[in-house]
């Protein structure tokens, strides 16, 4: 047999830039806003603040990344945060006389349970009846939002265990290391590690990628396509339950109005992070960077006292710019 000598592709600087394009964009952005704000952006207290601000939506974005990599979409996440938050709050109010750990655990289970139930239902409808996930989760979004108001009669639930506030506003080891690591940020880091390993290093993650990359090929290779899809919606729903409880803890109330527009912010973070809406391509690290880009922007626009309405315009333009840059750099890298 002939042995073919294949030259190795030279790794030029350009290729490296293309490979790490999103971190490069983030770094440039950070340098830019640091200069523009005369360094007040880079103050430790502000950086901790940015991390805390993005933590809720970024956590959901990790689940959303899985959904989008399978080629799906979940529009119900914002409403689910509201519904699961209210559900958790109601359960906690009902169990106020038990020890705080029990009470909060009960709330968490209620929130996750409701979220996972909604996610699973959406997943079943998507897989069994072949209805586009856009429509199914759009319906779920309306239904969940409606129920969020119905179960609490439209009134936020205030009577919550006092210790809950630690989850929303506390810091890890505050007495030892100071106000460095907010609890939600710790959860964000744990979530990042868990979902990163799940997508890149487990059989389940490989199935997610395969289904989104070529569903028919995946089916013919023996991948349980339906089960895989169902699972990603279930996981994302459950994740909404966790965030719903964190939201309760932050506000010390179960409020049916929270989470408006979150679905779009979350999808924006995923897409800015380089995940393809057509499925099959995406990483959790990219999503974290996408969430950071949006978070840094929001924060610096505030620091720069940009008017609220203009903030939206700038954010929209930046998302567009990031997508254009991503596409241009990827084309360069292919040449």
């Amino acid at each position: 047999m002939t042995v073919y000598e294949i030259p190795s592709t030279p790794k030029t600087l350009l290729h490296r830039i293309v490979q790490f394009r999103m971190p490069v964009v983030l770094a440039l952005l950070i340098v830019m806003v640091t200069v523009l704000t005369d360094g007040s952006f880079a103050k430790p207290a502000n950086l901790v603040n940015v991390a805390r601000q993005i933590s809720f939506e970024a956590l959901i974005a990790f689940g959303m990344t899985l959904v989008i990599v399978t080629g799906g979409i979940d529009l119900s996440v914002g409403s689910l945060v509201a519904l699961t938050g209210v559900a958790a709050a109601l359960v906690m109010r009902a169990t106020l006389d038990t020890p705080p750990a029990v009470c909060i655990s009960a709330g968490l289970m209620a929130g996750c349970g409701v979220g996972a139930l909604f996610g699973t239902t959406s997943g079943i409808i998507v897989t069994r009846f072949s209805i586009p996930p856009f429509i199914v989760t759009l319906a779920a979004m309306l239904i969940a939002r409606g129920f969020a108001f119905i179960v609490c009669n439209g009134q936020p639930v205030y009577e919550l265990p006092k210790d809950l506030i630690y989850l929303g506003r506390g810091f890890v080891l505050e007495s030892a290391i100071g106000r460095v690591l907010p609890v939600p940020v710790l959860l964000l880091l744990l979530g990042f590690a868990g979902f990163h390993i799940l997508l890149s290093r487990t059989v389940m993650g490989r199935r997610v990628i395969a289904v989104g990359s070529n569903e028919e090929a995946a089916r013919l290779a023996g991948i349980p396509v339906r089960r895989t899809k169902l699972l990603v919606y279930m996981i994302t729903g459950g994740l909404c339950g966790i965030v719903g409880l964190l939201q309760d803890a932050k506000l010390m109330a179960g409020d049916p109005k929270v989470g408006e527009m979150w679905e779009l912010n979350v999808i924006a973070a995923v897409v800015v992070g380089g995940t393809s809406l057509f499925g099959g391509r995406g990483t959790i690290a990219g999503t974290l960077i996408g969430a950071l880009i949006i978070g840094v922007l929001n924060n610096s626009l505030n620091l720069l006292h940009v008017e609220h309405f203009w903030q939206k315009v700038v954010l929209g333009l930046v998302i567009l710019l990031a997508a254009l840059l991503d596409a241009a750099l990827r084309r360069l890298g292919r040449r």
């Binding site: 487990t202 059989v203 490989r206 199935r207 990628i209 395969a210 990359s213 070529n214 028919e216 090929a217 995946a218 013919l220 290779a221 023996g222 991948i223 099959g280 391509r281």
Partner: peptide, 23 residues
């Protein structure tokens, strides 16, 4: 259409039918 994950690596394509073998 029915066989390959075109955008993915040879490794991911070959192990697709039995990813558990390397897990």
């Amino acid at each position: 259409r029915e066989g390959l994950l075109l955008e993915r690596s040879i490794r991911e394509n070959i192990t697709l039918a039995d990813p558990g073998a390397s897990a």
